[in-house]
């Protein structure tokens, strides 16, 4: 279990993380979402004792990270896949980590096998692709068989097969009762992996909850095409639903497809097309974080 309480971090006059409070529970995958520069990595570094909080606290299993007797056996983390000496082989890299925490070195071959790097174990890590480095980082994270795991943007550089593998692997780790925190700037990616979401923007908590809880932020629109759009439009407006004309149909917000179908039937209007246009969680995320992105690009209109 990870507990973050009123965590704040400032660098000079820049506030990277502001009064963040949340907890990450065991047994589920928690998605840590936010645009680039929103403070996800800074928060994770504070959890690992790499950054000192300006105020507030971050604890793991109720303790400060620096007070853990053998940190790698309680918390495994992949922050930056390339954060290793490029001249050392994958095996030697993991071996040194195991030695530092008094973990049996026989575990090295095991984790290399789990992440599928056994065949390149004696290659220098500097020659690894980003995807292979991510796998090596995951191997390092699970080295001490920890109950808490943190991964910062772990799918970067992975091929589709690799992405599917990490998804399943994270779900498996959570199913074993571990606490799994995975950061990403892509909701579409986390939607398939995470049970619960923590969404931040500019270092502040925007919202948190399960997928269902977040769905309230999802506006669902229904497209309807009928024999008498005008008559139906008048009826729907009376009920307080909002609508827009789109081509030969109407886009309705406020009523479900079922409501609209029933309304048309009651008023003997022929329905030619009735289809829910569900906004994705991704769109909800984009909307929630819209004013919060640190770096935004604009598409020049022609």
């Amino acid at each position: 279990m990870i507990e973050i309480s009123h965590l704040t971090k400032t660098f000079g006059d820049v506030t990277a993380v502001h009064d963040l409070t949340f907890s990450v529970q065991p047994g589920e995958v928690t998605g840590f979402l936010g645009p680039n520069g929103s403070g996800k990595t800074t928060t994770m570094r504070m959890i690992l004792g790499l950054h000192r909080p300006t105020s507030g606290s971050a604890t793991v299993n109720g303790k400060n990270y620096r007070d853990l007797a053998a940190p790698l056996t309680e918390v495994g983390a992949l922050l930056d896949a390339k954060a290793l000496h490029p001249g050392r082989t994958a095996r030697h890299h993991l071996r040194a980590l195991a030695l530092s925490n008094g973990i049996s070195t026989s575990r090295v071959a095991e984790v290399l096998n789990i992440v599928g790097l056994s065949s390149v174990a004696d290659k220098r890590a500097g020659e690894f692709s980003l995807g292979m480095s991510q796998r090596l980082g995951i191997a390092a994270a699970i080295l001490g068989d920890p109950g808490i795991l943190m991964f910062d943007e772990p799918v970067n550089g992975l091929d589709p097969e690799g992405i599917r593998w990490v998804r399943e692997f994270f779900r498996f780790l959570a199913s074993e009762g571990r606490t799994v925190l995975v950061s990403s700037h892509l909701m579409s990616e986390m939607q398939l992996t995470a049970d619960r979401f923590i969404i931040i923007g500019r270092g502040r908590l925007i919202t948190q909850g399960t997928q269902d809880e977040l769905s309230v932020h999802v506006r669902s629109t229904v497209r309807v095409v009928t024999g008498d759009n005008d008559a139906l439009a008048a009826l729907m407006t009376q009920r307080g639903w909002t609508l827009e004309r789109e081509g030969d149909g109407l886009h309705v917000t406020g009523g479900s497809a079922r409501d609209i179908g029933a309304l048309a039937f009651d008023n003997q209007i022929a329905v030619y097309e009735l289809s829910p246009l569900n906004a994705s969680l991704e769109e909800a995320f984009m909307e929630l974080t819209a004013g919060e992105a640190q770096y935004t690009g604009k598409v020049q209109e022609a």
Partner: peptide, 18 residues
């Protein structure tokens, strides 16, 4: 310095926070 140059210092100090 190679720990700082390669970024491996974070991996090292996450394993050895003292």
């Amino acid at each position: 310095t190679s720990e700082f140059a390669t970024g491996s210092i974070r991996t090292t100090l996450a394993a050895v926070p003292r």
